[in-house]
Design a binder for these strands. Structure first.
Lengths: 127, 127
DNA sequence: CCAGCTAGATGCAAAGTACACATAGCTGCA
DNA sequence: TGCAGCTATGTGTACTTTGCATCTAGCTGG
C-alpha cells in the first residue's frame, strides 16, 4: 500500500497513438495539429502534442504515411499527412491483434474458469 | 519508399502488456513464467520475458498486484502474483478506454464520411 | 504594436524496452 | 557422479520513447 499515491496520469502513446493517427487518416488527409485535437476530443487518454508530431514523423519514416507542406490556406504552413497502402495494411493487421487482445480481457473478466488442464495453483484469488 | 525496410518486429509491451497480465490474474493466481507462457500462447505479439518480470514488479509497486514466494512445489521458488482491488479497478477502467479506442478504429475503417462539419481538406485519399 | 492563437518542432532528463547474460533448483540419464 | 537441459527469476547495458518545457514563425484582432 503506497502511501505517496503515485498519481498515475495516463497518456496515449506507442502503438495505440500510432494506430489512432492512422485511423484518423483513413479516407481523408489531415495535419498534425488537427489530429492532436481529434485525439483530445476522442475520449482517449490525453497525448502530448510534441509526441504527436514526433510520432507522425516516425510513421512517415516507416512508410505508413506520407506528407507535404500545405501553404494553400492562410496561417502557418501545415504538414498534410495521408495514409499509404502500407499504413492501411498495418492498420488492418493491428485490428486483428486488437481483437485478440480484447478477447483476452473479456474472457478474463467474464468467464472465471481456469484456462487449461493444470488446475489453478491457488484459487483463493476469486475473493 | 524506404529501401532498408525497417523490419518492424512488433512486441507486446506498455499498457497492453500490463493489462494482459492483470487480466490473466483475474480469478486465480499465477507466477511470471506461467504468465509469460500464456502470453506467448495467446496469439498476441511476442513479449520479452525479462520485460514481463520487470512489468510485474512495476505493477506490484503501483499496487495493482501483490506477490509472495511460493516454495510449496518442487523446483525453483516461484513468485506468485495476485490481483489487488486496485488492479481490478484499473483493469475495468482500461476496458472502457479500449472500447473507445476500438470504436475509433472501426469507424475509420467502415464509415468513410468525414467526422465533423468542416469538409475534408483533400479528399483524394480514398484511393 | 502586441497579446494570443495556430502550427510544427526540438532539448533534455526520465522512463521504458530488447537483448544478452546470470543465478539457482531440480530432473534425467549415462 | 557429472552434467546437460529445463524451470524460474532476475540484472546490465545500450538504445529508444516519452513528458514537459521551450522555441520559431505566421497570422488575427484590437
Amino acid at each position: 500500500m503506497p502511501e505517496n499515491t503515485p498519481e498515475l496520469k495516463p497518456r496515449l502513446h506507442g502503438e495505440m497513438l500510432s494506430t489512432s493517427l492512422l485511423a484518423f487518416l483513413k479516407g481523408w488527409n489531415a495535419y498534425g495539429y488537427q489530429l492532436a485535437q481529434k485525439l483530445a476530443a476522442a475520449g482517449l487518454p490525453e497525448s502530448d502534442s510534441g509526441t504527436v508530431y514526433r510520432t507522425l514523423r516516425q510513421l512517415e519514416k516507416a512508410g505508413m504515411v506520407s506528407s507535404f507542406w500545405d501553404t494553400s490556406e492562410s496561417g502557418p504552413a501545415r504538414r498534410m499527412y495521408s495514409l499509404t497502402r502500407a499504413g492501411e495494411l498495418f492498420l488492418s493487421g493491428w485490428i486483428d491483434v486488437l481483437q485478440n487482445y480484447q478477447k483476452i480481457l473479456h474472457n478474463a473478466l467474464e468467464s472465471l474458469v481456469p484456462p487449461e488442464g493444470e488446475s489453478a495453483d491457488t484459487e483463493d484469488a476469486a475473493s
